[in-house]
Write a protein that binds this DNA or RNA. Structure first.
Lengths: 193, 193
DNA sequence: AGCGTATTGGAGACCGATCTCCAATTAATT
DNA sequence: AATTAATTGGAGATCGGTCTCCAATACGCT
């Protein structure tokens, strides 16, 4: 009962991802997104309440896509040491397959204006993080982590370190070398001791 | 032979650092800096050719301050393993003492508009990086690193990993815990094998 | 065929940031 | 005291981005 949309939400978000990947969050403006898909700015405002909402959605879609696979790897393997290695490999592999979205992941929610997000958007961010954090805590327990320092170390080994390997190459502008997964897995194992 | 300046360069850069630390590079605008020190915008333009130059200077001053101490630690200790541990500790300690500047360090030159910098600014950035990179290469050799993968691992252990520990806490908004230096040194040692 | 509705497509108001310009100010020099 | 030079302290032009508004459009439904 209505005119068919010419520009759907995902198409606009895809453009936003490309813009953010090449120019950072600051490059994600309503006009830039509109221009990138060849739409008038009015159409962008039809999908997103404002720039704040667009930034929130582009960040959340990216993080949720990443977390989906990451969570599956984390919980899909009963042996905790193998799960840990698989998780750290997965981070690098996902970034290799999704270089633009990976570039987003290296920023933080704060860079995408989290302070101004609606409650709904903030809630979505929290719930995704909580789920991964819980899985990580289970794994930490299975690995015998006792104190906070040991848990910190596990989070570093399974999330932050792999992202750092990716960051290094993305910043340098070079593609991820073939051995990046091996290097990361190796280092993760070393960090777990 | 002239009216004495009321606002000197470092004072303006200090304000720029605070702005960048709390709101990212995007928050560093000419007017925001002027307002932060109580100066009219004209005075800011008297010191910096434009926003591009201001961003370059704020980034370069920060990185050069960091690199100065880092380079000293890297080259001041003859035993390579001890030098490596000291370097990784130093990164965390420096960030603890300079939290605002540390927040800048977690971004990249690209976020401070490196693509638009003057040749002079770009040269300064390269020369600082080259110096540290050379010291790091010497250390890698002393540690017996053979292939590229081993060198990557050393750079990760001595620079990227410590910064990641800092990033984790800065992003979470929590202060660096007392054991951060120990944790980092431990992990660096583990990464070096 | 005609109605209702969701979307398009674009014009333009508004706002904040960059940058220019220049008279006024202040201090060292002559 | 007069001169000169560097800086201040703004006023305002200009540009780009956000956001509003509405007529035109195209489809499903009756």
């Amino acid at each position: 009962m209505a005119r068919p949309p010419r520009f759907d939400t995902d198409q606009l978000l895809d453009a936003a991802v490309r813009l953010a990947a090449s120019g950072g969050p600051a490059a994600v403006t309503m006009s830039a997104v509109a221009q990138a898909v060849g739409a008038p700015s009015g159409s962008v405002y039809h999908r997103f309440a404002g720039r704040t909402a667009l930034l929130a959605e582009v960040w959340l879609r990216t993080v949720e896509r990443f977390q989906e696979g990451y969570f599956a790897v984390l919980t899909g393997e009963p042996d905790p040491r193998r799960a840990a290695r698989a998780a750290s490999r997965h981070v690098v592999a996902w970034c290799r397959e999704n270089p633009d979205e990976a570039a987003l992941l290296l920023y933080g929610a704060a860079d995408f204006g989290r302070a101004d997000w609606s409650d709904e958007h903030a809630r979505r961010a929290d719930s995704g993080n909580d789920r991964v954090f819980a899985a990580l805590a289970d794994l930490a327990e299975a690995l015998g982590a006792q104190d906070e320092q040991a848990r910190d170390r596990i989070a570093l080994a399974l999330v932050d370190f792999p992202l750092t390997v990716v960051r290094r190459h993305l910043r340098a502008g070079t593609p991820l070398p073939p051995h990046a997964e091996d290097l990361t897995e190796h280092c993760t194992a070393a960090l777990l001791g």
